[in-house]
Amino acid sequence: MHKSWWKIASIVLLGYTVVAGFLGEVPRLPLLQETIRNLYFHVCMWFAMMILFTVSVVNAVRYLRTFNLKYDIYARHFAVVAIVFGLLGYSTGAIWASYTWADPNKPAYNSFSTIARDPKLIGAAIALLVYFAYLILRDSIQDIDKKARISAVYNIFAYAILFPSIWILPRILPSLHPGNEDNPALDVKNDISGSMRIVFYPAVIGWTLLGVWIATLKIRFTLLKEKKMVS
């Protein structure tokens, strides 16, 4: 495999996440119960998404500085993988919410209107939609240089929307989602117990590296295709 140490690290960390994530000690909390273990999966999806979007915007800036199309390809594929992680985070959150936030006396779909109005969810949905628009914008422009330049600029704009919509906006409004009170969404020092932190941090790194791996595979494949088209 191509430069494989961090891929092996990703595999090891994810293996550790699954084993320690299911078997490790967790605080016993009412309502949450064992679903607190979703922290290692659901929350990590969002962390991986944010890191991958950051990599994407960095590459967009690099493109604008050098006009090397390679960076445009990097930016696009990191954004796509980040969107996939975002969708996974969203759908896992939906499952989790329907068993913890929903009124247990009513069927889950009855609580849907309350849950769907939660500002954190709407913020995340806005962020994802902005990035969907990024892909649509890209693929609607034929000229390669124009496509790269406009989408790089749009990428920066989308990144500037991402953090207000998932970090700031939900904090202003009341929300069911944890991390609404004063501290940033996850005050890892106080909100997460020590026994969970030793799984949570490796889990974030593991999932992020997996995302990077997928993105690099796509990038390498695209670069090959471009090379074939030129020659």
Partner: peptide, 16 residues
């Protein structure tokens, strides 16, 4: 599956 894909792409890269 990822490892297999990675190897396939590596082989393609070598061929080019």
């Amino acid at each position: 599956y990822m490892v297999r894909l990675d190897k396939k792409i590596s082989r393609l890269e070598k061929e080019n």
